[in-house]
Nucleic acid binder design. Structure first.
Lengths: 146, 146
DNA sequence: GACTTTGGTCAGAGCCTCTGACTAATTTGG
DNA sequence: CCAAATTAGTCAGAGGCTCTGACCAAAGTC
């Protein structure tokens, strides 16, 4: 089966995204962090250093707050995050990274750096820079949160 | 909450991918094609003009053949695809696009073209070309099917 | 203080995806 | 040519993800 050379830009974007996610996931699992799922990771990734509200996590991950709540529940049970009261709003709680999550993040960051380096080697420094530049610019028209 | 300017390349890839998928999906729904799901679409997208085997669809969409089978079942019930015997192998069947799917594809293609045009306007012709070039090159190291 | 908005939860349903086990046709190695 | 291994696909079952709708409580508005 021949794959036509002109794929649409969507598929072109998805392929490396998926490849990167798979690499990170495999490395995490190998390092012993095998008790969370991709969906949980996509939420966890968005938690800021000072903690982030559930609603905000939901918006950024583009899921409903119910879904985000469900995923945070799992992460909490697995010891990756804590929920602490938000001092500025008694309704709200801040979802914070626990130590275990920070350790996992170190592993993940290392793999991302590794893969990015591989890509840069394949593309050349210049093209890699152009790629990131173009993608960053694209956020302005594609990221409701930019 | 401030979003740091240096997002990792994975997120950078995911954002426009998701934005495009959402646009296509909304347009399809508006055109009356509201009886299939994103997961089904990701499989349907991979069906070649002469039809494609289930196993091959599964590999390309990066799901198990059971999952692919499940999705093709739905698509068949909804009238988007047919399964015809593969003349070269009595075990296999070819999944083929039905007329309904071709009509949906026309709508989808139009929206993709529209979005790509918007992106090109935002990025400029040169940067858009560079983007597609870099992504196409990246397939060599990220697409097991390239 | 009533009204609206916002942060979050509970319940239920449907969809997606996987693992494991299996059948049947094809290919491979002697 | 036949036995063994591979490949195409299915069935059954379980678990995970995500949504809609309904709801409560705190905060902001007038």
């Amino acid at each position: 089966m021949v794959v036509e050379s002109e794929l649409n830009t969507g598929v072109l974007l998805f392929l490396p995204y998926r490849a990167l996610e798979n690499r990170v996931f495999a490395a995490l699992a190998e390092a012993g962090f095998d008790d969370f799922t991709p969906a949980q990771a996509r939420v966890m990734q968005r938690i800021g250093p000072q903690g982030t509200r559930l609603t905000e996590l939901a918006e950024q991950a583009q899921v409903t707050k119910q879904t985000a709540g469900f995923l945070v529940d799992q992460l909490e049970k697995a010891g990756y995050v804590r929920r602490v009261p938000d001092p500025t709003d008694k309704r709200a709680r801040l979802v914070c990274l626990a130590e275990k999550a920070r350790a996992a993040k170190d592993v993940a960051d290392a793999v991302v750096a590794e893969v990015e380096k591989e890509w840069e080697e394949h593309l050349g420094k210049r093209r890699m820079k152009q790629l990131r530049e173009a993608l960053t610019l694209l956020r302005e028209v594609t990221d409701p949160w930019a």
